[in-house]
């Protein structure tokens, strides 16, 4: 009798362990599996056929105009807190000096970094997605870059350059949410977004401080301000445009601009702190 109970318990234990899935695979096999998962489309299943999928009405119009500008910061820069990386010894070991949150990065010249500037209205025609991937790199337990733009259908290559585990959790509003794991260094996953949206957030639930944002556009007219607060949008064809600047904390601002030829226009923004 006792034997039978022991057998029963042992049997359940074993089947539970088996159920909990296919035994530990070796790292290489796991990695290959992950890397092989290329080009998973992240489009919301119910989304209507995206505009970019429709036959192009007009050939993609590119022009010779350039819009450049600066995003000024008005006020006193908030002090970003130093990130505590104690939750993962690896992350901590990657930084000899303190690392700070990147929500508000005010440059020495009183401009704002990580502002996504893009044409919000006025673009006609459809622009095929570039085949070159945009890379989102996880290094030192931070995302690089912190803010970026991408075209609909363009590959987004997420890379883990860290010797620790990351999960990449995308929180889109108009595309399908995803959450994938990259337990090993060197892992790559390619994703695509089919619907335009701004303020798409990425986070890592392992390392809570990690956050990145992207804007998805059905055209190539976007840029992110650099450590001089400057941006440059190239190859704009003639037209009337609404240019918008987006910042994760300070929101959006818009300006109108008219392009007639291949001129260079300047559009400056200023966010109040």
């Amino acid at each position: 009798m006792r034997q039978r109970v022991v057998f029963l318990i042992f049997g359940t234990l074993t089947s539970l362990a088996l159920l909990a899935c296919g035994g530990k695979k070796d790292e290489d096999a796991l990695m290959e599996e992950e890397t092989a998962k290329t080009s998973t489309s992240a489009a919301a299943p119910a989304a209507p056929a995206a505009a970019s999928a429709a036959a192009p009405a007009a050939a993609p119009a590119t022009g010779g105009a350039t819009v450049t500008g600066k995003v000024a910061f008005d006020g006193t820069a908030p002090t970003e807190p130093a990130i505590k990386m104690d939750a993962d010894a690896y992350c901590k070991s990657q930084h000899a000096t303190p690392v700070y949150e990147q929500e508000v990065v005010v440059n020495p010249n009183k401009t704002l970094q990580w502002v996504l500037v893009y044409v919000k209205e006025g673009v006609n025609g459809s622009y095929p997605a570039p085949t070159a991937a945009v890379e989102l790199n996880q290094q030192g337990c931070q995302y690089h870059p912190h803010v970026f733009g991408i075209q609909t259908g363009q590959p987004l290559k997420v890379v883990n350059s860290d010797g620790t585990l990351h999960n990449i959790h995308a929180l889109p509003k108009k595309n399908a949410e995803f959450n994938i794991g990259q337990p090993f260094k060197g892992m790559e996953t390619v994703k695509k977004f089919d619907n335009p949206e701004t303020g798409l957030r990425f986070k890592c639930d392992v390392h809570k401080w990690m956050g990145a944002y992207c804007g998805v556009f059905n055209h190539p007219f976007f840029a992110v301000t650099n450590d001089q607060g400057a941006f440059e949008i190239k190859n704009l064809p003639p037209g009337n445009y609404v240019i918008e600047a987006w910042h994760e904390k300070y929101g959006t601002q818009t300006q109108n601009v008219t392009i007639t030829g291949s001129e260079a226009k300047t559009v400056d923004f200023s966010f109040k702190g």
Binding site: A20, K24, A89
Partner: peptide, 23 residues
């Protein structure tokens, strides 16, 4: 841990202790 019932591809009972970091 984005997957289930596995943990980052491992059988949950053999997920190495060294990988218990952060969340």
């Amino acid at each position: 841990v984005p997957d289930w019932p596995t943990t980052y591809g491992y059988n949950m009972f053999t997920f190495p202790l060294s990988k218990w970091v952060g969340g």
